[in-house]
Design a protein around this nucleic acid. Sequence first.
DNA 1: CGTGTGCTTGGTAACGATAACAACCGGTCC
DNA 2: GGACCGGTTGTTATCGTTACCAAGCACACG
Lengths: 321, 321
Amino acid sequence: MTVSRVLSGGKNVRLEVQERVARAVETLGYHRNENARSLRPGHRSGLVGVTITNIANPYYAEMLRGVEEIASSHGRRILVGNSNEDADLEKQLVADFIGRRVEGLIVVPSSAGDAAHLQPERLGGVPLVLASRAVADVAADTVLIDDVEGARGATAALLAEGHRRIAYLGQRSVFTGRRRLEGFTLAHEALDLRPDDELIRVGQQDVGSAEQAMTELLELADPPTAVFSANNRNTVGAIRAIVARRRSGGSAGTSSLDIRVAGFDSFDFADIAPVRLSVVDHDAGDLGRRAAAMLFDRLGDAPQPLDARTLELPVTLRDLF
Amino acid sequence: MTVSRVLSGGKNVRLEVQERVARAVETLGYHRNENARSLRPGHRSGLVGVTITNIANPYYAEMLRGVEEIASSHGRRILVGNSNEDADLEKQLVADFIGRRVEGLIVVPSSAGDAAHLQPERLGGVPLVLASRAVADVAADTVLIDDVEGARGATAALLAEGHRRIAYLGQRSVFTGRRRLEGFTLAHEALDLRPDDELIRVGQQDVGSAEQAMTELLELADPPTAVFSANNRNTVGAIRAIVARRRSGGSAGTSSLDIRVAGFDSFDFADIAPVRLSVVDHDAGDLGRRAAAMLFDRLGDAPQPLDARTLELPVTLRDLF
DNA sequence: CGTGTGCTTGGTAACGATAACAACCGGTCC
DNA sequence: GGACCGGTTGTTATCGTTACCAAGCACACG
């Protein structure tokens, strides 16, 4: 009991005893057992659980840092799990985190599979914040990037420059992909136009397949004059295809030499890319910080809104030429 | 007790009772308290603590994924902390992790400050693996990249191409920086050469300051014809400076147009860099996996070597042109 | 001198889970 | 019939910590 008192400030303990305890702690290499502490009622575990679909993706790594930064400033540690886009793994991670009595969860929901395990009543009262992607039918606080507006704005800029055949490279199965395609379509509809289905390519996962898709587009009888890509891998693949065609002296004449490119997410060297490029820029770290802030808001003493809140972070369109 | 039995397999519990328990667990949203479980003697916490100097650095993010992969395959979760190169913060993180009864620690030691908190006797018997950087006087298992050989090999390649004025962009205060500078110097000495101190720039932490340093080098009366950079931030900065000078029609004539670049660490889209670039490539994920494997080796039942072991992972030089 | 006050210290119980043991059941065997 | 066995269920004690209470002491006050 006296040791406990010393370790939590030393109130009402004789100075000499405090020193004796400190010495013993030092020589014995004693570390107070936080698991036992958190067992006592009223005590918090000081943990926040984070599941990410791919930790190695620099985008999510940056987000994770944002989460860690805010968690750390609230004296919390983060438990991290990689769901690998697998709902089953995500379910196990969430269950384990709750078992470890995390105070809250921040989840980038996996795109594949059922999300029943994220329903509030399955979480035993642990607050959940979804980051980057929303989940249908799950009423949880959510922080998103304004995918629709980002894609709409970038596409609208291409249309305003006079482009009428604009290709789309991206995804349709992932939440953000769907939203970005929606923005792409909205921009067209605002001008009473309709994107040509022939110019829409989805499913490219890496630079290689994106390059392949763009090469095919350039070989069309009526090729696109501009391309919007929904992520930086597709942007880089598109640029490669354009450069390769330029080098081989593109058969379609000069038109393929100056394909205009706009893409979601910036990347290293975006500003020295050999094409007229615009990027939809946003701060992954901010996404993490906002998600964490939303979580600690729920953990605070302030009266809570009962409804789930959704935050859409703004993006900016930057011309890099 | 019966519930406990059901949850740990259901041996010797009537089937009907098992079903009843399962239903109650479902409706109540019950999750077994892992902290309480780990309190019992003989039981393991299932946690591994990882401290990294900068989570947002894609290199360490990739390493973290490697650690997570191995930890996950051993049924362990990872607790992650960002030390921000601050030994004090690192000390707090390590103490907290031990307090949470992690089974082991993987630490990228911070470059600044005292490392007494990493001494084995201060860790209360928790095994420690140092990753990426060694610490003098700390007898812990260590996994390193072969920095010296990587830097020596890349520099030797530049020298073999005939370059005699090779700049160095990197660090000297960080363990890996010192080793890479050593390799850079060794390559020169092997040909009885000595690097020009004027061409050695240390201390650039980000792309911006690296670009600035490279710009200064290009403005020298006798500028370098090649540059070796000790990490990818410096490589990107150097490439930007070269491209910027090329665009402004470098006053030093054509020589600044084809500065040869070699750098430690690859990075996203390195192969689209508009310069003749070689990179010293190594797998950060592998670094993490090896560190984790070394840790679980110590945690296993096999008889343990008493001495600390050091592993140096090989690197490969890749020409990206 | 008795009582009250404040400081210091230690005893007890409780958090949740589970090994170890005890108790009870029905069935089998001698 | 009684001893024994295996399957099932519940009781007890313990892990490390700390809120709460009690006890002891020195000191001040009336």
